[in-house]
Computed example of a mutant assay.
Amino acid sequence: MRIMIVDDHSMIRAGLRMLLSSKEDIEVVAEASEGDEGIRAALELRPDVVLMDLSMPHGKDGLTAASELKEKLPDTAVLILTMHDDDEYLFRAINAGAGGYVLKSAPHEELLAAIRTVARGDAYLYPTATKRLMNEFIGRMTRGESKDVFDTLSEREKEVLELTAKGYGNKEIAEQLIISVKTVETHKSNVMEKLGLKSRPELIKYAMKKGLLHFE
């Protein structure tokens, strides 16, 4: 298996390379420190699996990069390797097209099993995440719920959706929410992808339908 590692911490990349290179069936073909660099390398080398960190402060974040990679290289599996044991990140990773999600705190054997699983084209989630997903699915089936896609948005994404629909620019939104412009752009991209929207007019129409445009 030809593996690429995308993580902003050089020590983590070095540790992963040492672990993976010790296995006869695995070859590490490239490393990258952020999403854009990872996408360029993947397009050139076409690895079987990309190990992708979520939080990379410089350049493109892991979720955005994973989504672009799956669009451009559908045969390359993306395995999210992160410290975030969080349902919101998990669902967003799945929506972005990731084939698996494993924690950095997992034992080496679990990471290797996850890599081999997604390389076969199967999905991998760490055990406690699988249990939570099953419980949520069973709960919805029991209640007969049909979840609105809007409910999958995080509270921050809903705030960005509302402010964007009201005509605020990225810098203004960043100032109001006390976050970076890059974070605003990421939230906006995730909102558009989750809701299946292609343009600002579509976003405004959707916000009106949801009753979000209440001006003071």
Rank of each mutant, 00 (worst) to 15 (best):
R2Y: 12
D7C: 06
D7W: 01
S10T: 09
M11D: 13
M11C: 11
A14D: 14
G15H: 01
G15E: 11
G15R: 00
G15A: 05
R17A: 15
M18S: 14
M18T: 10
K23T: 07
E24W: 06
V29S: 03
V29N: 01
V29Y: 00
E31W: 02
E31P: 00
A32K: 00
G38M: 06
I39A: 00
I39H: 01
A41R: 05
A41P: 08
A42Q: 12
L43F: 11
E44K: 10
L45F: 06
R46W: 03
D48Y: 04
V49L: 07
V50H: 12
L51K: 00
L51R: 00
M52Y: 00
D53C: 05
L54V: 07
S55H: 04
S55G: 05
M56I: 08
P57R: 00
G59H: 04
L63D: 09
A65C: 07
A66V: 01
L69V: 03
E71D: 04
K72N: 05
L73E: 09
T76L: 11
T76G: 04
L79W: 14
L79Q: 11
I80G: 04
H84Q: 01
D87S: 12
E88P: 00
E88A: 08
E88S: 05
Y89L: 04
I94T: 06
I94M: 10
N95S: 09
N95E: 07
N95V: 02
A96N: 07
A96L: 07
G99S: 05
G100A: 09
L103H: 03
L103Y: 07
K104H: 10
S105G: 09
S105W: 08
A106S: 10
H108R: 01
E109G: 08
E109T: 09
L112T: 09
L112H: 07
I115T: 10
R120Y: 05
D122L: 07
L125C: 08
Y126E: 06
Y126I: 07
P127L: 05
T128A: 15
A129P: 01
A129H: 02
T130A: 13
L133I: 08
M134H: 12
M134Q: 13
N135K: 09
N135E: 15
F137T: 14
I138F: 13
R140A: 15
R140V: 14
T142N: 13
T142K: 05
S146H: 12
K147R: 13
D148C: 13
D151W: 09
T152Y: 11
S154C: 06
E157I: 12
E157Q: 15
E162Q: 10
T164P: 15
T164W: 08
A165F: 10
A165S: 06
G167H: 05
Y168I: 04
G169Y: 11
G169I: 08
N170W: 09
N170S: 09
I173E: 01
I173G: 02
L177R: 11
V181A: 02
E185I: 01
E185N: 04
E185R: 00
T186R: 03
T186I: 13
H187C: 12
K188Q: 14
K188F: 15
S189P: 06
S189R: 00
N190L: 13
N190Q: 14
V191G: 02
V191H: 00
M192N: 02
M192Q: 03
E193F: 02
K194T: 12
L195A: 08
K198A: 14
S199G: 11
R200Q: 10
P201H: 02
K205A: 07
A207V: 08
K209D: 15
K210T: 14
K210F: 14
K210H: 13
F215I: 06
E216H: 11
